[in-house]
Computed example of a mutant assay.
Amino acid sequence: MSSEKKVGPWRVTGSRDVFENPWIAITDHKVIHPAGTPGEYGVVHFKNLAIGVLPVDENGMVPLVGQHRFPHDKYSWELPEGGGTLGVDPLVAAQRELVEETGLTAKQWAPLCEFDISNSVTDERAVCFIAWELSQGAASPEPSEALTVKKIFFKDLLEMVISGEISDSLTIVMTLTAHAKALRGALPEPISAALLAGGERK
């Protein structure tokens, strides 16, 4: 009996796991391409959801988290983000990440966006939220993290995204989605007003 299976127009004739650690697993698939030619397809499976948070205060200010990102060997300014265990409510993970990285808690939360981060060779998905009515407490980053937090106006964040100064995909998607939803009135009115107002970049 053949173990061949279909994945859309692809035919998978065999698979083997080639690497695994606590965060990812890599599987090498022997495939028949949609055009009928044989080949290979490696897929990186992520064991966590990517979680992002756009926290905004009544003045339209948001916190950015700065850290050196190992894969790209460069410093990156990002909205609060991290990993959430699969099968656990993503909102719980978002609330935890916000406190850990910034010390902020929020009374109000709403879904902002969900998307595939890189759908060519990975199955990683992101779930992101917008949070408001913020209270400041003490941050508690993981021991492996060296973080810097600064607050800027959302308008300045939008400019950093558009100019390419920010390259983190979750931050880009959250920022542009929030701006579009604010313009459409698809967010609570006080939040839309805060996002579209705010000060000017120095």
Rank of each mutant, 00 (worst) to 15 (best):
R11K: 15
G84M: 03
E78Q: 10
E159C: 11
A131T: 06
G39H: 12
E40R: 13
I51D: 02
C128H: 04
A139W: 00
G84H: 02
S76L: 07
G66P: 02
M160L: 14
S2Y: 11
I130S: 01
G39R: 08
G39Q: 13
A182C: 07
A35N: 14
E165L: 09
I166E: 03
E97T: 11
G36E: 14
A110K: 08
Q108V: 14
E20Q: 14
L158P: 00
D73S: 12
H45A: 07
H33S: 13
P9F: 10
S76P: 00
H72P: 00
Q67W: 11
M61G: 05
I32P: 00
A126K: 08
T122V: 03
G39N: 14
V88P: 01
G198M: 03
S163Y: 04
T122I: 06
D89Y: 04
P111I: 06
K155P: 02
L195N: 02
R11N: 07
I172G: 04
D73V: 03
S135G: 11
E100F: 14
R16L: 15
I191R: 05
N119V: 14
T171N: 03
C128W: 00
H179Q: 11
I130H: 00
T105S: 14
W23E: 07
N48W: 13
A126M: 04
P111N: 10
A194Q: 05
Q136H: 01
P9C: 11
W77E: 02
G87V: 07
G36W: 12
I32C: 04
P63Q: 09
G82C: 03
E114L: 09
Y41N: 06
H29N: 13
A110E: 06
L49N: 11
T175V: 06
F70C: 07
S163A: 12
I172Y: 06
V7W: 15
I152D: 06
R201C: 13
W23N: 05
K181M: 12
V121T: 12
E101N: 04
S192L: 12
A35I: 11
T37F: 14
A94V: 06
S140K: 10
L86E: 09
E4C: 09
T177P: 01
L86V: 12
S169E: 10
A126T: 01
G199C: 08
R11F: 07
A180N: 04
A25M: 13
D123S: 08
E81G: 04
G185Y: 11
A131W: 08
E133T: 11
D17A: 15
S167Q: 10
L79E: 03
M1K: 09
G199M: 07
T37R: 09
A25L: 13
K150L: 09
K107E: 15
V92N: 08
T102H: 03
V62P: 01
T177M: 08
H179L: 04
I191Q: 02
T85Y: 12
G36L: 12
A131R: 06
T171M: 04
D89F: 05
P143T: 00
F115C: 05
G137C: 01
D73F: 02
G185C: 07
L158Y: 05
L196G: 06
L54S: 04
P38R: 01
A35C: 11
T13H: 09
A93F: 05
T105E: 15
L104V: 01
I32T: 13
N119M: 12
A197S: 15
E101K: 14
L86G: 03
G60N: 03
P80V: 06
V65I: 05
Q136N: 02
S15R: 15
E200G: 13
G185L: 09
L54K: 00
K74P: 00
L112I: 07
